[in-house]
Design a protein around this nucleic acid. Structure first.
Lengths: 201, 201
DNA sequence: GCAGATTTTGCACTCGGTGTAAAGTTCGCC
DNA sequence: GGCGAACTTTACACCGAGTGCAAAATCTGC
């Protein structure tokens, strides 16, 4: 355990992030001001911006972790396995790609509702939708370095964006967990197949 | 020729856009305020926002035209030709994809300098860089509709983003027109090859 | 408990963007 | 040419995100 200062910082950061998430999901991203978040967290606006570079960063909090997981999935693949094959099960195997969460968990209503609320909030805000694409784009260079092919990385990120689209659509239409999984597999699977075939040289 | 009102509107819009472009390329996107643009154009700030939805729209002005060109390239392809094959020459055949501008034109110094200034301005501003990705993403759905495959469209846009990256890098490094062309062909060509092979089913 | 490093805060400010209502233009028509 | 309707432009007041700065509060090692 670190010193008191370190612990307080971590706690403050977490508190701000939690409260922001709750407020966003209750009222919508655009409807909540940073001033409200700061007040609810018992902290000044300036402090919020000390921890988070922008309002959007309060929403997308786990995306760095996601990149790390992608990179280690690539790095740890058995010799001879293609990048596409290595990524396949993580992309198709659960609701949140590269997070250890399987399709079965989506059957728990509170998980379904939580993910759905997050997606609804994101879709309702152009700024957040835009932000997601930008974040995804920042993945291209690291993925390219790890996989050894810029072309592969650029198109793989295209496939990830497709996946987010398909998954989000199905969730917002309130499809059953089974249907959501089926849609992701049948619509994103072919993209991965094409990637596999395309880079089979 | 339209009525006076229509002509005036078109002229005002063009004047604002031209002045904005000049100011951006001289001082950088972030350094120029909308108020300065409005003043230079002899118009109120509100009028600027009557014509353009945001400051970024003042910079990316021809992107709609680009989408139109992509869609008609797809639509008019001979029966039996794959979407990838149809797009290939437009993607690899000139400095600005889907604009009738061939590689030869890049050899004219003022063309080279103009495009380079535009790119430098874009790269210097995170907001503009982000905006480009968002614009590219809005192309996915229309392209998917025209090509009949969401998977293809998602990954094709990935290839377009790669192209923009490669082209921009080469231009900012002040490579010769010949080198720029070669880089685009050798780095983006494989992506299109993969796309062709991948969707050959 | 003290000195020095670190965090938090308040404050004043800039800039992008919106809503509104009034002033200024253009249009179709007589 | 002139008149009323439709449309554009403008000023003004406003909001929210984000920054820079210097003072106040807090933690750290000793």
């Amino acid at each position: 355990m670190q010193g008191l200062r370190e612990r307080k910082k971590a706690a403050t950061r977490q508190a701000i992030s939690d409260i922001a998430t709750r407020l966003f999901e209750r009222s919508g991203f655009e409807q909540v001001t940073v001033a409200e978040i700061a007040a609810a967290a018992g902290v000044s606006v300036k402090t919020v911006f000390n921890y988070f570079g922008s309002k959007e960063e309060l929403f997308f909090d786990r995306e760095e972790e996601l990149l790390e997981n992608m990179l280690s999935t690539l790095r740890d693949r058995p010799a001879g396995m293609t990048p596409t094959a290595a990524m396949r099960s993580a992309v198709l195997g659960g609701p949140m790609p590269f997070i250890t969460c399987r399709w079965a968990e989506l059957r728990r209503p509170e998980v379904y509702a939580g993910i759905r609320a997050f997606l609804a909030c994101e879709r309702a805000s152009p700024a957040l939708t835009a932000r997601r694409f930008v974040i995804a784009q920042t993945w291209v260079a690291p993925l390219a370095a790890e996989a050894g092919s810029a072309a592969w990385a650029a198109m793989f990120v295209g496939a990830l964006n497709l996946r987010a689209q398909v998954f989000g659509d199905a969730m917002l239409e309130r499809r059953t967990p089974g249907t959501v999984e089926k849609r992701v597999r049948t619509e994103v699977g072919p993209a991965l197949d094409a990637l596999e075939r395309g880079f089979a040289a």
